[in-house]
Computed example of a mutant assay.
Amino acid sequence: MNRPLTASGLVDFSLWGWLLYVPLLAAEARLRAARKPAGQRVVARIEPRLASSSAPSTTP
C-alpha cells in the first residue's frame, strides 16, 4: 500500500511507512530510560569495592 500511494504521487509520504517506526522508537525510548538507572546500580555496586581497596592498610 505504501509504494502505490507514493509512486502515484497521491501523497509525498505514506503514513504506513512511518507507522513501522513506532515500535522501534518506543523500544529505543524504553532502553534510553533504563540506561541511567542501570548505570547507577553498577556504580553503587562497585563503589564499596573501590572504597575498601583504596583504604590505607594498617598492616606493616
Rank of each mutant, 00 (worst) to 15 (best):
M1T: 01
R3E: 02
P4G: 03
P4T: 00
L5T: 03
L5S: 01
A7N: 08
A7P: 01
G9F: 05
G9M: 10
G9L: 06
G9Q: 04
L10W: 08
L10S: 05
V11T: 02
V11G: 02
D12Q: 06
F13Y: 04
S14W: 00
S14D: 04
S14L: 00
W16P: 04
W16Y: 14
W16R: 02
G17R: 10
W18F: 10
W18H: 13
L19Q: 14
Y21T: 02
Y21R: 11
V22N: 12
V22H: 15
V22K: 12
P23D: 00
L24K: 11
L25I: 03
A27C: 09
E28F: 02
E28I: 00
E28V: 00
A29K: 13
A29H: 15
L31S: 05
R32H: 12
R32S: 08
R35S: 05
K36V: 05
P37A: 03
P37E: 04
P37M: 02
G39H: 07
Q40I: 11
R41A: 14
V42Y: 06
V42E: 12
V42I: 07
V43A: 11
V43I: 11
V43P: 14
V43L: 11
A44M: 05
A44F: 06
I46M: 14
I46E: 15
E47L: 08
R49F: 10
R49C: 09
L50D: 10
L50K: 14
A51S: 14
A51I: 12
S52K: 12
S52P: 11
S53E: 15
S54G: 13
S57V: 12
S57Y: 04
T58K: 05
T58V: 14
T59E: 07
T59A: 12
